[in-house]
């Protein structure tokens, strides 16, 4: 393997890991804090992707593609936040403590949402133009790497650092971390954990939507089922990393993204995806709580 191929695969794998991390981190926090398996999380991702597509193709009055992408980024993130907030506020909140009903509700929202998007925009893949600079190629160690990959990686790293900073340095973060560890105790201290639930859902929705934007750039297009497909790998990332651990999710996203890229390249398309599942099975057999998870759930 030449160095160029190695660098290219590494950066691509890390870019993919960034997209995985963005969708999986919210999923992991939501599960860690409130034991909700949020099947609607893929929809948040799709919302991000389709908002970007909508703005990039319909906002013709904004001449500059770069500015258009900035608008798309802001709008998509805002929509993700709103959809995440609404899901918690109007659906999930009514059923805390009843895990099966919560799963079923988010499942219904997810399927209806996908069908809604499909009904509006058809199931055909939609492509959108990206700003000029993203289509350029950077040369690193002799490897020609699309700037978009580097951008995805950069944004993901910034968001990871931001998320960790919020969790470690702010009061909200403190409550969330404490809640993941022992929710009853936090409630017993007189702290309103329900507010954190809403916050985590909204932030999770926003992060997944950003994942959708970057995913749309990474895969050069969006489809209605896009989010649901990503959700499956996000589940794998979350379980391998350890439920409720943001650091674990980041680590596992890197492992899964790189494994998938390298194996898919050398052993053929699809084999990498299978390897990831084997990785999951091995993790479960050796360490059921995940890499950085505290306890088995």
């Amino acid at each position: 393997m030449s160095l160029q191929v190695f660098v290219l695969l590494s950066v691509t794998g890390l870019g993919l890991a960034g997209v995985y991390f963005l969708i999986a981190s919210g999923l992991s926090l939501i599960f860690g804090l409130m034991d909700v398996l949020n099947l609607a999380h893929g929809l948040f991702f799709t919302v991000g992707g389709y908002t970007t597509w909508w703005v990039m193709t319909r906002f013709q009055w904004v001449e500059s593609l770069g500015l258009r992408f900035l608008i798309a980024f802001v709008l998509a993130t805002a929509f993700g936040l709103i959809v995440g907030w609404a899901t918690e506020r109007f659906f999930v909140r009514r059923f805390y403590g009843d895990h099966v009903t919560q799963i079923l509700i988010t499942l219904g929202i997810s399927l209806a949402g996908v069908a809604l998007v499909g009904g509006w925009f058809s199931y055909d893949p939609q492509t959108f133009p990206v700003p000029e600079f993203m289509r350029q190629v950077a040369v690193i160690a002799g490897a020609r790497i699309p700037v978009s990959r580097l951008l995805i990686l950069g944004i993901s790293v910034v968001l990871l650092i931001g998320l960790l900073a919020v969790l470690r340095r702010t009061r909200h973060g403190l409550i969330i971390r404490a809640g993941v560890e022992n929710r009853q105790m936090v409630q017993a201290m007189g702290i309103d954990v329900a507010k954190s639930f809403t916050l985590v859902f909204a932030v999770g929705g926003g992060l997944a939507a950003i994942g959708g934007i970057l995913g749309g750039v990474f895969f050069a297009g969006v489809t209605p089922e896009f989010g649901l497909n990503m959700l499956i790998f996000a589940f794998i990332v979350v379980v391998i990393g350890g439920l409720g651990s943001v650091e674990g999710t980041a680590l596992s996203a890197v492992i899964v993204g790189l494994t998938q890229q390298f194996v898919n390249f050398f052993a053929g398309a699809g084999v990498g995806d299978l390897t990831v599942v084997v990785l999951l099975a091995v993790t479960l057999l050796l360490r059921p709580q995940g890499l950085l998870g505290e306890v088995a759930r």
Binding site: D35, H99, V239, G270, V277, A281, L284, P288, R297
Partner: peptide, 29 residues
């Protein structure tokens, strides 16, 4: 393998196994 974990983790693991088969028949290596 999947029954080593319970509840939601079990759901995720069974999903992953099924998806592996889905990928296998779709990619057809």
């Amino acid at each position: 393998v999947a029954l080593r974990v319970r509840g939601v983790a079990f759901a995720m693991v069974t999903l992953a196994f099924a998806e592996a088969f889905h990928v296998f028949v779709e990619a057809d290596p």
